[in-house]
Amino acid sequence: MAEQKTFKGRVLCEGELTGEALVSHAGVNTLATFQKSALKNAKIIIGSDQNNPDIYGKAITGKILCLPNTIGSTTGGLVLQTVCSMGTNPSAMLFSNEIDSLAASGVILAKHWENSKMIAIDLLGQEFLDYVKTGDTIEIKLDGTVIVTRGS
């Protein structure tokens, strides 16, 4: 029996989508996570941050990345812009906290300079991050509603 829970956040880049969740409970180090695959020009980004077991070694491209925020090098925004320009970005980024300045830069740069359609929503709350699990189905609505479905 399917279990469902609904959350509401602030829309930063709008869009509608249904996809699979990939969850990081710790802040995502953008450079450390994306760099290895991006440097290889890989079509699918595999998380390469040794310090983040939640997403290390997992495919990120096309997934709905659920995270508290991003951390690490200030190349972060530029790295996000680049993966969006290559079309290897997550399809959406759902932040439980207020988005950080680096991720916000990446999202804005991708939107204005790459015409990226990557959805970004923040302020979904800690309860969202505590509830959602990798592999859950997530439906995102235009108004920032996020419906997490588990099981069939």
Partner: peptide, 9 residues
């Protein structure tokens, strides 16, 4: 200074 991203700097 904020933790600006590359390009924003």
């Amino acid at each position: 200074c904020n933790r600006n991203s590359g390009m924003i700097d």
